[in-house]
C-alpha cells in the first residue's frame, strides 16, 4: 500500500483538486457545503452566497457548485467549452483583511508555486444583472490563464452589502487541465487512478454534454419553458406574500424567503434555456432579465427580515423596536434594538 500513488493529488485527479480546496478552506473556518440542489448558472446563485451575503451576520462557506450555461454547450466537440461545469465557490463575510494572501495560499495548496508561476490580479468588475448585484475585483491569472474570479461584493439583490463579503470562484476544469497538463477537458483524470481503473472526465460527462447540447439548442420544450417561467415568477410572488409578517402582528420575521428564492433561481435557469433555444428576441431579453432581477430584489428584501438575514432576538421578541427591515441595514437594526 505504501507504494500506491496519492490519487487525491490535485495534479493527478479532478476530485483531488476539489478535496484539496475543501480541506484548505475548511481549515480557515469555512463550512463545507454541498452543491445547491437546483440548476443554477453559477455558484453565486447558491443561497449560501446570494442570500448570506446580505445582512450583518458573519458567514464563511465553501462548496462546489455544478453550473449550467445552456448556451455554452458544444455537443462535446470543443475541448474548452461545456454547458455543465463545476465552480468551487468560497464566500467570506466580512472579507478578512488578508483575503488575497489566503487565496494565494490556496493556490500553493493545490501545487501552484508562486516562485515559478506568474500570478496576476487583472481588473474585472463583476456584475450580475439578474441578481441586481455588483462588486469590484479581479480575474486571477496564472501564466496568462484566468483561473479564478475574486470579487468584493458591494451590492446584492439591490441592497448594499454591509459588511462586504469576499467571493472567490475557481474554475475547476480549467485549473485541473493546467495542473494535469492536458489540452482537453475530456482528458482530465477524474479519480487519479491509472490503467483500467482510470476514470476520465470524458467517461463521466461526454455523453451528457452531447445530450444536453441537443436538449438546450434543439429539443427543449419552449412552450413548457415559457409556462415554467411564468409559473416560477408567480410562485415566487405568492410565496413572498405568504411569508410576509402579519400586519400589526408580534413577529416581524419573513417566513418564506428561501422557498421564494428557489423560484427566482428557477426562473433564471428557465430564461437561460429559452435564450439558448433562441426564442427570446433582443428586446425581450432585457425585460426577462429585469423580471428575474425584480424577484431577486424582493427575495433579498424578505431575507433581510429573517433571523439569518440579521434580525436579532431582541427584535423578534420585542417587535415594538423592530424597524421595517427592508430598507434599514442589518447592523443599524441591531443598534436600534
Amino acid at each position: 500500500m505504501a507504494s500506491e500513488p496519492d490519487t487525491s493529488s490535485p495534479a493527478r485527479s479532478f476530485q483531488g483538486l476539489i478535496l484539496t480546496l475543501q480541506r484548505y478552506w475548511a481549515a480557515r473556518g469555512c463550512v463545507i457545503l454541498q452543491p445547491y440542489d437546483m440548476e443554477v448558472g453559477a455558484g453565486t446563485f447558491h443561497p449560501a452566497t446570494t442570500l448570506r451575503a446580505l445582512g450583518p451576520r458573519p458567514w464563511r462557506a465553501a462548496y462546489v457548485q455544478p453550473s449550467r450555461r445552456p448556451k455554452d454547450g458544444r455537443y462535446g466537440e470543443n475541448p474548452n467549452r461545456l454547458q455543465h461545469y463545476y465552480q468551487f465557490q468560497v464566500i467570506l463575510k466580512p472579507n478578512p483583511p488578508d483575503l488575497q494572501e489566503l487565496y494565494l495560499g490556496s493556490l500553493d495548496a493545490i501545487g501552484i508555486d508562486t516562485g515559478l508561476h506568474d500570478i496576476r490580479f487583472v481588473e474585472d468588475d463583476w456584475e450580475s444583472p439578474t441578481l441586481g448585484a455588483w462588486g469590484l475585483g479581479w480575474e486571477c491569472w496564472c501564466d496568462g490563464m484566468e483561473v479564478s474570479q475574486f470579487t468584493y461584493f458591494q451590492q446584492v439583490a439591490g441592497f448594499e452589502c454591509a459588511p462586504v463579503a469576499g467571493e472567490l470562484t475557481y474554475g475547476l476544469e480549467r485549473l485541473a487541465m493546467y495542473l494535469q497538463g492536458v489540452e482537453s477537458i475530456y482528458d482530465l483524470n477524474f479519480n487519479g487512478l491509472d490503467g483500467p481503473d482510470r476514470v476520465t472526465y470524458r467517461d463521466v460527462f461526454l455523453q451528457a454534454e452531447e445530450e444536453y447540447s441537443r436538449h438546450n439548442f434543439e429539443v427543449a420544450d419552449t412552450a413548457m419553458l415559457f409556462r415554467q417561467f411564468r409559473d416560477a415568477e408567480g410562485a415566487c410572488r405568492t410565496y413572498l406574500a405568504a411569508g410576509e409578517p402579519a400586519e400589526g402582528g408580534n413577529d416581524p420575521r419573513h417566513r418564506m424567503a428561501q422557498p421564494a428564492y428557489d423560484q427566482c433561481i428557477k426562473a433564471s435557469h428557465v430564461f437561460n434555456l429559452l435564450d439558448a433555444r433562441g426564442v427570446i428576441s433582443v428586446t425581450e431579453r432585457q425585460s426577462y432579465i429585469l423580471r428575474v432581477r425584480d424577484l431577486a430584489k424582493a427575495c433579498g428584501a424578505a431575507w433581510l427580515k429573517t433571523e439569518a438575514g440579521g434580525l436579532t432576538w431582541q427584535e423578534i421578541e420585542a417587535p415594538g423596536l423592530a424597524r421595517n427591515g427592508a430598507e434599514a441595514g442589518g447592523l443599524a437594526r441591531e443598534k436600534a434594538a
Binding site: 466580512p94 462588486g135 468584493y152 458591494q154 454591509a162 459588511p163 462586504v164 441595514g329
Partner: peptide, 13 residues
C-alpha cells in the same frame, strides 16, 4: 472613477 468598501469596517455607513 469606481471605488469600493471592504472588510469589517464596511458594516458602518
Amino acid at each position: 472613477p469606481k471605488s469600493m468598501r471592504w472588510g469589517a469596517a464596511s458594516a458602518q455607513p
